[in-house]
Design a protein around this nucleic acid. Structure first.
Length: 561
RNA sequence: UGGCCUAUGGUGUAAUUGGCAACACUACUGAUUUUGGUUCAGUCAUUCUAGGUUCGAGUCCUAGUAGGCCAACCA
């Protein structure tokens, strides 16, 4: 038993240090705080796995909190999708929370800040406020409204809340420091007027708190010990702490914000805005298009929760810029699917093979192993007959000895079936091979134990019996973007790198055992890749998605030539 | 150019906090294989640069360099 010491990431180091210096294990509490303005993507998966993983590790509760402070962008549809994605990944949240549940508390605290002279109502336009912000190298200047009396501020803020003003007429600002080197500390806006219905509070409120005045306070209300977010929020930490300083009480736990680098995936984009653009421009069919890096897209594509979690686990958490290669995600898909996906045979690019010495009209049902990685998966029957399909690329009239497939005069084994030899072929008037005539060795049947059946032939092909085959639409996916970092170019828009060939639809010929496959069910089409049944399937026509190909060393060999 | 963050194989992450640079992926060898899959074995590093402290530096110090973030009534 080699007890493998799992190395800690820097967040875990921080927590371990906190535990050593006074935190009780029972005080630990985390949260995953998405804004319901889009679907969750693979980048969120890292954050989900981090927070919920920490919860599991320390036996601490993890809240699912919707950061719903901007009714202009948020919808219930997104709330529902986010919940189902987190649940699908296999995590259970302790409490389902909404920042909107805290609107009253936040308002009350804001009133306190005004009374303390720490906040004021500014009646300038957003342009005026922006122009007074200064620049990173020059300090800002004070608003003419900065020194309004407490009474006037109170009266105006209540007026804002009561709907006495139009959008943009006033905002509430924290009175901090217009000369701070941190732009966020230059009297940040805490509230703005928005006469928009909110998906939960409807028209109860027409002032909405800003992110900075919501997040830390929500963490405090929920008594989150470690509030983990991405690196771009690092400058917000000073503000996060300033707001907390105004209201934290000594007997309660004070949350800390810590930041980690967002994970970027090669050959894709991971930004809700850009994903939305892909959806709205029609480049993809929706948020759950199998080419999308969204959780729902990956699920539909055939990724398992295990593969996504293992992926998140191996890429880890750190603070530096990164672009993780998609091949690592694909590796985890193959690794898990290899263990669980039943093997079947399907031909996606058919070439007819006729077994000339096989009796016309005869059929045999052969035994086929469902999964060599899992003995308990058992066996099924596949039909064999005189006329079969093999893959076009598995036959060549003539080829060198590195080609382990069918060629004229050569032998090959049909998986789970017989050894056949190609004798001749016929072509259409363009010179394309349209049929191969073969003979089979009746004594070479797989599993029969005869001397002939044990004979080694170099190649083994998958195949399907033409009269028994069922057809289905098979969707083959390629990377959505041709460039490794589509949004990493200053002079070019990421949309310029959209791969026009990211989806190819073909008709597949499948062994008949597949006819009862259910939506979402996963299979390995032997030698072709992993596939699952798409939700677009109907009784008349099944639809399969290719999740990922198998590793293909032959294709690489060929490419080199 | 003000402030802040980061820098370890092609990629991502480690290194018991100053003690033999490790793990995974990719790529490439080879073995096994009724999937050119799987499995197994192997190969791939001047730890951004230059100095310094130390018996000893990826780790500490100094100075550079490169990349990133910050001026929404978005989150």
């Amino acid at each position: 038993m080699s007890e493998e010491v799992k190395s800690l990431n820097f967040i875990e180091h921080i927590i371990e240090e906190d535990l050593r210096s006074g935190y009780e294990m029972s005080q630990l509490r985390f949260r995953f705080p998405p804004e319901p303005n889009g679907y969750l993507h693979i980048g969120h998966a890292s954050s989900i796995c981090l927070n919920f993983g920490l919860g599991l590790k320390y036996n601490a509760p993890v809240n699912l909190r919707f950061d719903d402070t901007n009714p202009a962008k948020e919808e219930k549809e997104y709330v529902d999708a986010i919940k189902s994605d987190v649940a699908w990944l296999g995590y259970e949240w302790d409490t389902e929370c909404y920042a909107s549940d805290y609107f009253q508390q936040l308002y009350d605290w804001a009133m306190e800040l005004i009374k303390d002279g720490k906040a004021y109502v500014d009646s300038q336009t957003s342009e005026q406020i922006a122009s007074q912000k200064g620049t990173p190298t020059e300090p800002g200047s004070h608003s003419p409204y900065r020194d309004r009396s407490v009474e006037e501020n109170l009266r105006l803020f209540e007026g804002m809340k009561n709907g006495d003003f139009k959008e943009g007429e006033h905002v509430l600002r924290a009175k901090i420091n217009m000369a701070s080197s941190n732009m966020l500390m230059r009297d940040p806006v805490m509230y703005r007027i928005l006469h928009k219905a909110h998906h939960r509070t409807n028209t109860d409120w027409c002032i909405y708190p800003m992110y900075d005045w919501t997040h830390g306070e929500s963490d405090y209300i929920e008594q989150i010990s470690h509030s983990l977010c991405t690196l771009e929020f690092l400058p917000h930490r000073e503000l996060y702490d300033w707001f907390l300083d105004q209201l934290v009480s000594a007997e309660k736990l004070r949350p800390k914000q810590r930041e980690f680098a967002r994970r970027n995936l090669s050959h894709t984009v991971v930004s809700k805005r850009k994903l939305l653009q892909l959806v709205e421009s029609g480049v993809v069919a929706g948020w759950d298009d199998p080419r999308m890096p969204t959780i729902s897209g990956l699920r539909r594509r055939g990724y398992t929760p295990e593969s996504i979690k293992n992926f998140a686990d191996t890429i880890g958490i750190a603070k530096r810029e990164n672009v993780v290669d998609v091949s690592l995600l694909e590796f985890h898909a193959r690794e898990h699917l290899n263990k669980i996906a039943p093997r079947v045979m399907a031909v996606l690019s058919p070439l007819k093979v006729v077994i000339t010495n096989y009796e016309e009209g005869k059929e045999e049902w052969l035994d086929a192993e469902n999964n060599p990685e899992d003995e308990s998966a058992g066996y099924r029957k596949v039909p064999f007959s005189k006329e079969l399909y093999i893959e076009q690329e598995d036959f060549r009239e003539d080829a060198n000895r590195k080609f382990f497939r069918l060629k004229l005069g050569g032998e090959v084994r049909l998986k789970n079936g017989y050894i056949i030899q190609a004798n001749s072929c016929t072509k259409d008037n363009k010179g394309n091979v349209i049929e191969v005539q073969c003979t089979y060795d009746p004594l070479s049947k797989s599993g029969s134990g005869t001397e002939e059946s044990l004979r080694k032939v170099k190649g083994t092909l998958h195949w399907v019996s033409i009269p028994h085959a069922i057809t289905a639409e098979v969707r083959l996916y390629d990377r959505l973007f041709t460039d490794e970092t589509p949004d990493g170019h200053k002079d070019k828009d990421f949309m310029e790198f959209v791969n026009p060939d990211s989806l190819e639809k073909v008709t597949g010929y499948l062994e008949p055992s597949l006819k009862d496959a259910q939506v979402g069910e996963q299979f390995q089409f032997q030698r072709m890749g992993y596939f699952n049944v798409d939700k677009d399937s109907t009784k008349e026509k099944m639809v399969f998605n290719r999740t990922v190909t198998l590793k293909d060393t032959w294709a690489k060999l060929e490419q080199k030539e």
